[in-house]
Design a protein around this nucleic acid. Structure first.
Length: 217
DNA sequence: AAATAGGGCAACCGCACCTGT
DNA sequence: CACAGGTGCGGTTGCCCTATT
């Protein structure tokens, strides 16, 4: 409240991103991987976009090693289980699914899993509380969730699911490689790509840690 | 073959939180 | 300690594609 808007909505472009914009953003983030400031990025990169929009685009779409669609049964089970435990904390849930974004998980939930969840739980109601998890979450799409029963046993094999997915190395590396091949972006990078999903052009400053102050440019 | 409905997904919005000054 | 800037996150919206009638 009372804060200045992050950008002038009237003067920045909105809506779907073009390939050119994607390329500009990707290149810029890769170049200035460790000195990120999303607010000033559009100016410096020459993009007529809001900084928040750039961040979102990067995190949800351009980041390497992302996977879209094709959720596996294990992933579904894990999401259902975690939702049963902590509610709609999508970022936490997504963190358990290598290559998935909170937006992806959220969309998948809203379009597919929600129905499954409530049919399994029989009585539509609130996601389990997991603390403050549901503080702001009024039931997605208007379902009254004030007394959610525990998740069905069938979906609670959390440990196993996590064991399957948490290491995630294979999937991550595979998709990362695929991504790199598709985009023709395999180039020597100072950032090591080893072992983690946060790779290459996944600048620590962009995306996860809100530090950096400015771009080198 | 055309019209309509529904589903899926990308993107936007606004608030809360974190960090630096 | 207070304030401001920047980031993270969850909810919602709108468009596009596909299935159905």
């Amino acid at each position: 409240m009372g804060r200045s808007p992050c950008c002038d909505k009237a003067s920045v472009k909105r809506g779907p991103w073009s390939r050119e914009e994607d390329a500009i953003l990707r290149n810029f983030v890769r170049r200035f991987a460790n000195a990120g400031n999303w607010i000033t990025l559009p100016q410096k990169a020459g993009l007529n976009r809001c900084g928040k929009s750039c961040r979102l685009r990067w995190l949800n779409y351009l980041r390497p090693a992302l996977r879209h669609g094709g959720f596996t049964d294990e992933e579904d089970s894990l999401i259902l289980s975690l939702y049963g435990d902590i509610g709609s904390r999508w970022s936490v849930i997504a963190a358990k699914l290598p290559g998935r974004t909170d937006n992806d998980v959220k969309n998948h939930w809203n379009t597919k899993l929600k129905k499954r969840y409530y049919s399994l739980t029989a009585a539509p109601s609130t996601p389990p509380t997991g603390g403050d998890a549901v503080a702001s979450a009024d039931s997605p799409h208007g379902v009254d969730q004030s007394s959610l029963p525990p998740p069905p046993p069938a979906m609670v094999n959390l440990g196993a699911a996590l064991a399957t997915l948490d290491d995630g190395g294979e999937l991550t590396r595979e998709s990362e490689q695929l991504y790199a091949e598709l985009m023709g972006l395999i180039e020597p990078q100072s950032t090591t790509r080893e072992s983690t999903g946060e790779v290459m052009s996944s600048p620590s400053s962009f995306g996860t840690s809100p530090t950096a102050s400015s771009f080198a440019a």
